[in-house]
Amino acid sequence: MPGKADVRRSVMFRSAVFVVLLCGLSNVPAGDAIWLNVPQTGTKCVSEEIQSNVVVLADYVVVTEDHGHIHTISVKVTSPYGNNLHHKENVTHGQFAFTTQEAGNYLACFWSEGHYQGPGELSVNIDWKTGIAAKDWESVARKEKIEGVELELRKLEGAVEAIHENLLYLRDREAEMRATSENTNARVTWFSVMSLGICIAASSLQIWYLKQYFQKKKLI
């Protein structure tokens, strides 16, 4: 059986690991709160680059100092390939939630369609959460009957998995960009060689034509 010293060292080690992971979790973004000024005419959009199979949850609400009137906006959220994920018109607040099917820039656009006639622009508050920040940990705790340190460890595990997935995504993107750069360099090289060959051929043909012309005129 392990002695008291071994048990104490094990507890201290686990505590240290917990503290390190907790510090790592504090550096993980928990979501973005965005203030967006929507003009009376035109559209204002926000976008975020998200990888596939990521949960996205966002709440938006119109904020105005004119409490005597109700001001509404229209909202449209699209995927990188133009698929419509959320579309509402003439609303004061709302929520959209989805799981990404493709990687790329997801776009959320807001416009007032002339419903707001007040001074200046219309303000919209957007609480945008992705990945681990969008998970409902209260439901998980009730469903799996966990709390306290065990719940915090589950959150840390989710954060570590999210960080690992982001690192893999960044690695894949870096490989794609490197492959694209190499293909572009190869194409530019072939284009340069072809351009040089065409110039040499055109110069040779021009010299031959001028030589024939001067010989025909008996100038040489």
Rank of each mutant, 00 (worst) to 15 (best):
M1F: 14
P2R: 12
K4A: 14
V7D: 10
V7Q: 12
S10Q: 15
V11F: 10
V11N: 08
R14V: 03
V17N: 07
V20W: 06
V20H: 11
L25D: 09
N27S: 09
V28F: 11
V28W: 06
P29K: 11
G31W: 04
G31T: 04
I34Y: 06
W35Y: 10
L36E: 06
L36D: 07
P39T: 01
T41L: 08
T43C: 03
T43Q: 14
K44H: 09
C45Y: 09
V46C: 08
S47P: 03
E48I: 02
E48V: 07
E49L: 05
I50V: 12
Q51S: 09
S52L: 06
S52E: 14
V56I: 12
D59K: 05
Y60S: 00
V61P: 00
V63W: 06
D66I: 06
D66F: 02
D66S: 04
I70S: 06
H71D: 11
T72E: 02
S74P: 05
S74T: 07
T78P: 05
P80C: 08
G82W: 09
G82N: 06
N84H: 10
N84M: 14
L85K: 05
H86W: 08
E89C: 01
N90M: 04
T92S: 08
G94Q: 00
Q95E: 01
F96G: 02
A97F: 05
A97V: 09
F98P: 04
F98Q: 02
Q101M: 13
A103T: 14
N105L: 14
N105D: 15
Y106S: 04
Y106C: 04
Y106W: 05
F110E: 01
S112I: 00
S112W: 00
Q117H: 05
G118P: 01
G118E: 01
G118R: 00
G118Q: 02
G118Y: 01
P119W: 03
P119M: 04
P119N: 09
G120V: 03
G120N: 03
L122W: 01
I126F: 10
K129C: 05
K129V: 03
K129W: 05
K129A: 04
I132L: 11
I132Y: 12
A133Q: 02
A134L: 03
D136A: 04
S139W: 08
S139I: 11
A141L: 04
A141C: 07
R142A: 15
R142S: 15
R142G: 13
E144M: 10
E147C: 07
E147K: 14
E147R: 14
L151P: 02
E152A: 12
L153H: 07
L153K: 15
R154T: 15
R154S: 10
G158W: 07
G158P: 07
V160W: 13
I163P: 05
E165F: 09
L168M: 14
Y169P: 02
L170Y: 13
R173G: 11
E176L: 11
N183Y: 05
T184K: 14
T184Y: 11
R187A: 11
T189H: 11
T189I: 07
W190N: 08
F191A: 14
S192I: 09
V193P: 00
S195G: 10
G197V: 10
G197C: 15
C199F: 12
C199N: 11
L205W: 10
L205H: 08
Q206D: 14
W208C: 06
W208F: 15
L210A: 14
L210P: 01
Q212M: 13
F214C: 04
K216I: 06
